[in-house]
Design a protein around this nucleic acid. Structure first.
Lengths: 334, 334
DNA sequence: CTGAAAGCGCTAACAT
DNA sequence: ATGTTAGCGCTTTCAG
């Protein structure tokens, strides 16, 4: 069996508590004043731990301290490059802060009785969740979900009951639409998913309003979901039927990539025949040829902010909820 | 405070053990024969749990059962698309198996005393690690690392002391080199990183041997690391100095993307002036224009196999180590 | 079918 | 500076 603190204490004829203190390097004063632990003891314990190949039982420690040293990050889809980049960013932040990272997809399955045998357990010190499209988070939290853990929400929609890092896509979406129009494009369409098609979505609203402002008809390409493959199929079918827009604003980069590939499948030239703009700011669009413009979300900043909120919430679960809004910005390429 | 099993038992005037059984739906027989738990009790308990908003303490459960319900996946870099796809694959497998997934980067920092305050704790039921380039895993495991948890290694090198899912890149690398040559390319180079430059690496060996076989000089572009940005900079500098090869085999897709972008930066046409081949099989190369060929690793299969090995190891830590070798295959595009 | 009791491995008062 | 004691919240024999 795994060697524990007792094994060390036996070997050294010390009490388990002393060993524990040594291992955790508790040099600090105790409540009543003086109690350091001696350097010599620390050294002895460390040496013995080494020799015995001690491995601590984090579970036991967590049970007594009430801290797991783990943070969860939930996104709507771990298969999306954007969320992978966000997860990566968190991973770096958490590593630095000595936390381990749990990843998961957050969605309807969380409410599925089949998956919550008995009751859900979230065995972490806190969770950061990309609430994503309008209210997707809400039903989950309102189900039998025991949101005991401190939680902060990031994304495009706030349900008001959580700390929230809000990414505002509206101004940049206006800009993107105008950019397309000002390039001399006369038929500027937008590719969206069902989740995007709402007045609460900054991208949708930005595009719609600018088009109206200019007295132009909106034109939508409806992709069943936001994957590149779906987008590719969507544009292929659409163009065959309706001809090709000369400007296309995609609600995310993943679809931007799919649209790019689909247009090239049909031999349509980018940017001669159509100008493309994506949204999210993943690395990949920059490496296409020609590089494709996009609306970049401030990934680093938003993760830092979310982590900040979470740290505060973990310290004090009673404080009022905070919200911070961050702007995405248009990145024009080539 | 969080409501626990005791709160339910108090409310229902039942013993905690009964509540526990109900919650875990232990309908089975006990050791001596008959004892079911009554449907009525189960129903009462569930109802009360609901009402009180019970949330189980996974840590306490883990302490007594010895099972955390968590599996870790470690890769050399969470920033690489390839490992992100592998992680995603695991995520799906683990979700299905009702495990949570911990992700981490595995590397020298794991041995860094600064990060292992006291001793490392890996609080999981098992770990799957991409051991990556030759022996990168070894020093970590040989350090004060308490590899108590069942562990399986995937990747390109086996250190012999672990269950291992081996991806053989050699045959496909030979094929890739031949493909480039047979396209009529006369100056076929390879882009590598320091880690790749060894006879133990199937890619390196495949390329080298085929070139020798054909009586041709090998030519290497040395990228400092395997990121796309490094590769882009590398090819820019290299071509300026040595002119441009007309065939380029990149040791991974990430570098393939960087090379693609770098070549296009210089106005070099793909595939007219140079044919590119990557390695790993991430989605992205297929979406470039023109799509870039690659050596695809059997991601699904290798993850399934690793999970299989791990499940067996978790059941029986004493069984002999197993190895399975999977072939990567060349995917020619366009 | 349910209850009582012990204990998972560790930490944190409190005592000395 | 170290030892003693009492749990953390749950599961699991064992009894009844």
């Amino acid at each position: 069996m795994a060697v524990g603190i007792k094994d060390i204490s036996k070997k050294l004829k010390l009490s388990p508590s002393t060993v524990s203190r040594a291992l955790n390097n508790k040099r600090a004063l105790n409540s009543r004043g003086v109690p350091y632990i001696s350097d010599k003891t620390v050294a002895r314990v460390m040496k013995a731990a080494q020799e015995l190949n001690y491995s601590p039982n984090g579970t036991a420690r967590a049970l007594v301290t009430g801290q797991t040293g783990r943070i969860a990050f939930w996104s709507p889809s771990m298969g999306s490059r954007f969320f992978q980049e966000v997860a990566y960013q968190f991973h770096q932040i958490l590593r630095e802060s000595q936390y381990e990272m749990l990843v998961g997809e957050f969605g309807p399955h969380m409410m599925d009785p089949a998956n919550t045998v008995g009751f859900t357990r979230i065995d972490v010190d806190g969770v950061i969740v990309w609430g994503g499209a309008l209210g997707a988070l809400k039903p989950v939290l309102e189900s039998n979900f025991p949101a005991k853990a401190p939680i902060v929400n990031m994304g495009l929609h706030c349900d008001g009951t959580l700390d929230f890092v809000n990414i505002d896509l509206y101004p940049a979406s206006c800009e993107a639409t105008k950019f397309l129009l000002d390039e001399g494009r006369s038929r500027v369409a937008m590719m969206i998913t069902p989740a995007t098609e709402t007045e609460f979505d900054g991208r949708y609203r930005g595009y719609t309003e600018v088009m109206k402002e200019r007295g132009l008809e909106v034109e939508f390409l409806h992709s069943p979901d936001s994957t590149r493959n779906a987008a590719r199929a969507t544009i292929l079918k659409y163009v065959k039927k309706h001809g090709c827009p000369d400007g296309l604003f995609c609600a995310n980069d993943e679809m931007g990539i799919g649209a790019y590939r689909g247009l090239r499948d049909m031999g349509i030239s980018i940017p001669d025949q159509v100008t493309l703009v994506g949204c999210d700011g993943i690395q990949d669009l920059e490496f296409l040829d020609p590089p494709v413009s996009t609306i970049a979300q401030p990934i680093e900043e938003m993760c830092e902010q979310a982590w900040n909120f979470l740290k505060q919430r973990m310290k004090n679960s009673e404080m009022p909820h905070q919200t911070e809004t961050l702007q995405a910005h248009l990145v024009i390429r080539k």
